[in-house]
């Protein structure tokens, strides 16, 4: 654990020094961000977290290319279909296309504008809700030359969308200027069985997130880590202080049982001893004298 922490700290400091090395990095920090309309998504955090191993290399490459990067605005359309109907335009994505001098292109600052549903569409949508049918959307697979190779289709049961208004959530998986897939659906739960419910107002509340591929963690190589590993040992080895109960429960429980046993026996003792005396149950009294012989035998045997 300590090693990892140390490595992470090292990487972060490296990154920081690199970042400090050149004048303006406003644009770069933007790079990590994307336009979100209607609220920030929680999945953004996991996305922005770069594995520490990759951090150094990406930062240096950024340094090299940042000056020569140029950006332009592009737009691509979202189309939708109700059940098996044909697709029609439903909204517009606009983003900034950043072209790196090494040839790579990435999208940043994605914004989305939904066209309001027309009267006719509202009617069809109601039909969809009644029939528990699919509401489908599609995006071009290449944002520069739509539709690219093929459209990216995604769909959701229409009954998942109505909340206050209509709520939707896009996660667009990108690879350069190619759209790989879009995860489309309600921003939260969609309880099953799906209940028929009409939206309060016929406007979409959209959340959009852009996602790029993550780096896989590398296999640990110990030749390099040997030095760092030893330093970290001091703290890691220290055993966690456990509570008294956690340590000795296996002794305490039987002890408790024995004590309880003893207590109950002690409680019974006074009952048995004055067998023929006032405290004893009434029906035992007459037989007590007769049974003395055997009872004393039993006591002895015990």
């Amino acid at each position: 654990m300590g090693v990892l922490l140390l490595r992470w700290v090292l990487a972060v400091t490296l990154l920081l020094t690199c970042v400090l090395g050149f004048k303006s990095d406003e644009l770069l920090l933007d790079d990590e961000e994307f336009g979100i309309e209607g609220g920030r998504s929680s999945s953004f955090h996991s996305d922005s977290h770069q594995p520490s191993t990759a951090a150094t290399s990406t930062s240096t490459s950024r340094k090299r290319f940042s000056e020569s990067a140029s950006d332009s605005k592009i737009q691509f359309t979202l189309q939708h279909a109700f059940g098996d109907s044909d697709f029609s335009d439903a909204g517009n994505f606009s983003a900034r296309l950043k072209t790196w001098s090494h040839g790579g292109q990435t999208l940043t600052k994605l914004r989305f504008k939904r066209d309001p549903l027309t009267e006719v569409e509202q009617k069809i949508f109601k039909e969809l809700l009644r029939g528990d049918d699919f509401y489908r959307i599609r995006l071009p697979s290449n944002v520069l030359s739509p539709p690219g190779r093929e459209y990216i289709i995604s769909s959701v049961k229409a009954r998942c969308l109505p909340g206050d208004g209509l709520e939707e959530h896009f996660v667009i998986h990108m690879e350069g200027v190619n759209v790989l897939a879009v995860n489309y659906g309600a921003p939260g739960a969609c309880a099953y069985p799906r209940q028929l419910k009409f939206p309060g107002k016929w406007s979409f509340k959209s959340h959009t997130v852009l996602k790029n591929s993550e780096q896989a963690p590398r296999a640990p190589i110990f030749a390099e880590d040997a030095l760092g590993g030893e330093e970290g040992d001091g703290e890691a080895v220290k055993p966690i202080e456990r509570s008294f109960w956690a340590k000795y429960w296996m002794y305490l429980i039987p002890l408790g049982l024995i004590v309880m046993n003893a207590v109950t026996q002690a409680m019974n003792m006074p009952d048995e001893q004055p067998g023929g005396q006032p405290g004893a149950p009434a029906q035992q009294q007459p037989g007590s004298a007769v049974q003395r012989g055997p009872s004393s035998g039993a006591v002895r045997r015990r």
Partner: peptide, 13 residues
């Protein structure tokens, strides 16, 4: 019917 599709960019994957 097709509900969804994932199209991998042919030049890179």
């Amino acid at each position: 019917r097709d509900l969804w599709s994932i199209v991998f960019p042919s030049e890179s994957e």
